[in-house]
Design a protein around this nucleic acid. Structure first.
Lengths: 222, 222
DNA sequence: ATCTTTCCCACCTAGGTGTGAACC
DNA sequence: ATGGTTCACACCTAGGTGGGAAAG
């Protein structure tokens, strides 16, 4: 009796549909969340800060997934693909290509792969709520681990990988969203990007308040 | 080539020994961390606060594990077993049994099971660092979920379950540590317990400083 | 009266922001 | 001189403490 309670607690992780057998991956669907917000940034060329210890992304990459087999086990991986072979420069208020990519040491610099911390987990887990990559950190120096190493002033496109971890690893899907392209920077170049980051990132609220205080103050009537 | 990089990223989760095949669970060993700290609390009868929204435990239950199969998948579960059939009272500086347990509704109240958030995961994952249950929350009201429901003024003993999630669920081990017994309370009864909590829990540092300021101040020499 | 619970609070831990000056 | 990077910092978010008054 004690045992059955235990097991049902484990099974409850699998509460979703569970139409067992058929890998329904034909119907796999991955949708980018906050797409409108991403497009606001993309429209004026998005930038992401890289630091020595790693900086989070904003907006946060978040996807909702359906069509996995609820009872199969998957890992979610994220990497950053160089979007072109250029080094970019911000001059006169716009980004312009300026020579070929540095490609640190090797021919094609690749910053490594970020494994979503919920990995590995059941299809049911990944589908029951949007999958958020808010903990991934971008860096320009190689240190400890967990962070993603990028070349500053190079353009990247985040790419999602869903891998089935069964008896044999099997790649299920690669998805990348062009809305999420950005240029890695050590400091923001375009002040319009800074303004958007401050407007929508709750952790930058201090600067949002500062901007408010520059607005005309309500006049004090006696 | 791109694929192999992906797969090796997944495999790296399994870096440990990987002496495949043999479930080496015969040699399973689970050790309580911070055992000396736990004993300090146990010696004067430990208490844990329960609140409506759930309160974390302090000390935190933390175990190091060895002897799992690195490449098998396990979940770690925690539950709280009534340590006796009594309701307890704190009178004249000591805890005394005061009547039989309330046992909310059913014959034997059981607060549910907490699933460690890293679950499910490879044996290698659970063994590469101590497994910490710092996020578990204790409550005296049933709400949302995730929290553990306990009866105030009743004594409990935390119990760890390691479950192998293969094609068929299989219970690997139940372990409980008598050092971690405690009485659930809505407010601390024994001021010695309060003092220990303040001394060792960094989140209570405010009160540690307050205690310091009541010590004789160093006299100012000119 | 007494015992137990609830609620708000000041004060922390822990860590995510862009800023602006300094550095290279 | 120029452009890119680094660092300390003030100011936030987010949430974990026990205290103490009030309520049940």
């Amino acid at each position: 009796r004690c045992m059955s309670r235990l097991l049902s607690a484990v099974e409850s992780e699998l509460q979703a549909g569970r139409e067992k057998g058929d890998p329904t991956e034909r119907e796999l669907r991955v949708t980018l969340e906050d797409a409108e917000l991403w497009r606001k940034f993309r429209q004026i060329t998005n930038e992401m800060i890289v630091t020595k210890n790693g900086r989070r992304m904003f907006p946060v990459l978040k996807v909702s997934v359906s069509g996995l087999d609820p009872s199969s086990m998957y890992s979610f991986l994220l990497d950053f693909v160089p979007a072109d072979g250029c080094r970019w420069k911000f001059v006169n208020g716009e980004w312009v290509a300026a020579g070929r990519a540095d490609g640190h040491a090797e021919g094609r610099g690749h910053g490594g792969i970020y494994i979503h911390p919920d990995s590995p987990n059941f299809g049911a887990h990944w589908m029951k709520a949007a999958v958020t990559f808010n903990k991934v950190k971008l860096t320009n120096k190689l240190n400890g681990g967990g962070q993603i190493l990028l070349n500053s002033l190079h353009k990247y496109e985040p790419q999602l990988h869903i891998v089935c971890v069964g008896s044999r690893h099997r790649l299920v899907s690669n998805v990348s969203f062009s809305e999420t392209q950005f240029i890695a920077v050590t400091a923001y170049q375009n002040e319009e990007i800074t303004a958007l980051k401050i407007k929508y990132n709750p952790f930058a609220k201090a600067f949002l308040d500062a901007k408010d205080s520059t607005l005309p103050l309500p006049s004090h009537h006696h």
